[in-house]
């Protein structure tokens, strides 16, 4: 069985996000970019399936700017076997919308015929969390979203999902699409020898046109703003003053 893992190059989780002065989006110039953390978990899970003998090949896919090949090299260094880069944008600020991504992935799925697509539950840049579900609809496949445990058993997958207030276990028919939640696993570090080996692994470069997909945006971003700044604290002189302030604000 092949496992297909879409990975997205996003602003690094630890970077303090700055909004562009004109409010059109987040400033990504000179900013550290890394693999979307949920996708990292998906890559790890796919590699573990391969190590457990349940998958034969792990294929990483990235759709975006040319530099996304760095993200794919990271996936290859972790243990993916080969990679497909779909260059769909020139400017790092261009975000390819979930429907376009899902259409390209659907076309790749038809070509590669994986038994499982493992994707992150959402990208931490736009937080849309829609690609996996859209892909499921386009392919007519089953889906198991927000997984914190995945067992592949023959023609079924048993997936434990994180839902409000607890866990839900579902059994889905293969081929299927599973999206990964934070607690599914802890991704490994890419070791030096594997980073070296990854440079020699195949990385195919494609365009959306190769798959007959038009990636022009359908959505318009109206405005991007910084979160409101927390108001400064106030020092009080005594317990009495504290209590009266709290009463004033209706807290006690």
């Amino acid at each position: 069985m092949k496992v297909l893992v879409p990975v997205k190059r996003v602003i690094d989780y630890n970077v303090k996000v700055r909004v562009k002065a004109d409010g059109s989006g987040v400033d990504l110039a000179n900013v550290k970019m890394s693999m979307n953390p949920f996708d990292e978990i998906a890559v790890e899970e796919a590699i573990r399936l391969k190590e457990a003998g349940k998958a034969d090949e792990v294929i990483a896919v990235s759709i975006g700017v040319k530099q996304s090949q760095e993200t794919l090299r990271t996936a290859l260094a972790m243990g993916a076997d080969r990679a497909i880069l779909v260059v769909a944008a020139d400017d790092v600020h261009t975000d390819i919308e979930p429907l376009s991504v899902a259409k390209i992935l659907a076309a790749i799925v038809k070509e590669e015929e994986p038994g499982l697509v493992l994707c992150g539950k959402q990208a931490i840049d736009n937080d849309l969390g829609a690609t996996g579900q859209m892909l499921s609809a386009l392919l007519g496949w089953s889906q198991a979203m927000y997984a914190n445990k995945v067992d592949v058993e023959g023609d079924h997958a048993v997936v434990t999902r994180e839902v409000d207030g607890g866990l839900q276990t579902v059994k889905v028919k293969m081929p299927t699409i599973v999206s990964t939640d934070l607690r599914l696993n802890e991704p490994r570090y890419a070791s030096l020898p594997n980073i070296m080996k990854a440079k020699k692994k195949p990385l195919d470069e494609k365009t959306p046109a190769d798959y007959g997909v038009d990636v022009s945006p359908r959505l318009e971003i109206v405005k991007t703003g910084e979160p409101p700044v927390r108001a400064a604290g106030e020092m009080v002189g005594s317990v009495d003053e504290l209590v009266s302030k709290l009463k004033e604000k209706g807290i006690v």
Binding site: D12, Y13, N14, V15, K32, S34, M35, P37, E40, T74, A77, Y189, A190, S191, L192, P193, I195
Partner: peptide, 9 residues
Amino acid sequence: DGVVAASDQ
């Protein structure tokens, strides 16, 4: 042997 940090995390 060694590892290279792939992210700020």
